[in-house]
Each structure stands twice: as structure tokens, then as C-alpha cells.
């Protein structure tokens, strides 16, 4: 899922201060699961903004709404009336949701209430971790299902850097070294020989290196 975190209340107040009627719009998909922008967080952030408005004399009138999926026009449609009756929208969707709204409502200011962080998983209660960098050309089959591009701070493809420790990454002391994980995993599944070949430079063009990406499926364009 896409994992995000809410912006701070002072940041949100600064973004919204010139507006009065504000729709705080949640998304029922990824950001609900990562507890950043679902129905519950819409209520919490709205409540905090009302308290802040009261303290700072800002006169916010906040409406709350959560739709199933902000990155999909079919679901965005459900928010049209609420969007129209407010001066601005604070989207608690991911960056894709915010932009889907902005593309559809040309005259309405749409603001991001979250910092979209990464594609990841819930690793443990209250801990989300990045797993995929969306590089557009998956190499997981070569590395025992552990992504060196995402999980190695230097995205090394031919083994660990010198700072690798058995229990930690040099850059992130709170995280394991991806290369230690890859080594043990490949050894465990009898594929350690994969590490002995020199992996050539990666083609970054299918990733963000090739510019903003689009996928066209002709069989779906009739």
C-alpha cells in the first residue's frame, strides 16, 4: 500500500489560513489502512483544526467527508456537492488522490494534508516500512524477494557496502542491512550463486529516470 503521514497542524493552518469553508476529504483505501487519511483521521485532524482555528481566531468552518478512493473519478464524483459548497479542500489522500481531485475541479484549491512517503507494508503494530521503489523493472527474482533498490540506502546491486553490519544498516541504525537479508535468504533457498555474477548497471528509464510514467493498455481503450 501507499504509506503516508499527516502534516503538522501548524503546517496545515498555514496552508489553509486564507480560507473559511474547508472540506477535509479522506480516502478509504491505502491511507485508511496506514492510519493517515481515513474517516477516523479526517475527524481527528478536523477536530484539531477547529481547536487551532479557535485559538488563532481563524474562523474555519470545517466539513468532513471520506470517499472510497480519491484516485478514481468514479468515487470522486460522490464528493462533488461537498467540494462545490466549500472554499477549499484539504485532501487526506496520497499525492495521487490530491492530483486526481485537482485535475477534476479546475477552480477549487485542493491541498495535500498528508506527506506521501512510500510503498510499503505494516511490519508490526504501528510500524510501516518501505518495500518498493516502483522502479518500473522489477529485480526481486534476482535477490530472493528482497529489494536492494528500495531497502539498501545506496541501492547497491552487487553486494553490501563496507558499512554493512549483521544487525544494522550504516545509514539507518534502526533498520537491518538489506544485503545481509538478501545473503541469508538466497543461501536459505539455495540460490547464493546469484550473488556471484556481476549485475550490470540498471536501466532506470522505466523508473522515474524516464520522466513521468504512463501505462497504456490498448485492449482497454475501446
Amino acid at each position: 500500500m501507499i504509506v503516508a503521514e499527516r502534516k503538522s497542524i501548524p503546517d496545515l493552518v498555514e496552508i489553509l489560513q486564507d480560507h473559511k469553508k474547508i472540506l477535509v476529504l479522506g480516502c478509504g483505501t491505502c491511507v485508511t489502512v496506514c492510519l493517515a487519511g481515513g474517516e477516523r483521521e479526517v475527524s481527528i485532524i478536523s477536530s484539531a483544526l477547529r481547536i487551532a482555528s479557535n485559538i488563532h481566531g481563524l474562523d474555519f468552518e470545517i466539513e468532513e467527508l471520506t470517499i472510497e478512493r480519491q484516485c478514481d473519478n468514479v468515487f470522486i464524483e460522490e464528493a462533488t456537492d461537498a467540494i462545490n459548497r466549500n472554499d477549499a479542500v484539504l485532501s487526506l489522500g496520497c499525492g495521487a488522490g490530491v492530483q486526481a481531485l485537482a485535475e477534476r475541479y479546475a477552480k477549487k484549491p485542493i491541498y495535500a494534508g498528508l506527506d506521501t512517503a512510500f510503498i510499503g507494508i505494516l511490519e508490526d503494530r504501528g510500524i510501516w516500512a518501505e518495500k518498493c521503489a516502483a522502479c518500473g523493472a522489477c529485480v526481486l527474482h534476482q535477490y530472493g524477494g528482497i529489494c536492494p533498490i528500495t531497502r539498501c540506502a545506496k541501492q547497491m546491486l552487487n553486494g553490501p557496502c563496507g558499512g554493512s553490519r549483521e544487525d544494522r544498516c550504516e545509514v539507518r541504525p534502526d533498520r537491518p542491512c538489506a544485503w545481509q537479508l538478501i545473503y541469508h535468504r538466497l543461501k536459505g533457498i539455495g540460490q547464493l550463486e546469484r550473488l556471484t555474477e556481476i549485475a550490470p548497471p540498471k536501466n532506470w528509464e522505466p523508473g522515474h529516470g524516464g520522466g513521468c510514467r504512463v501505462i497504456v493498455r490498448e485492449d482497454h481503450r475501446i
Binding site: 503538522s8 497542524i9 501548524p10 481527528i44 484539531a48 483544526l49 481547536i51 487551532a52 485559538i55 488563532h56
Partner: peptide, 8 residues
């Protein structure tokens, strides 16, 4: 923490 952020 949220109340602190909100200015209270």
C-alpha cells in the same frame, strides 16, 4: 501532542 500543535 496534537493540542500542543494546535496552539493550546
Amino acid at each position: 501532542a496534537l493540542l500542543f500543535e494546535s496552539g493550546l
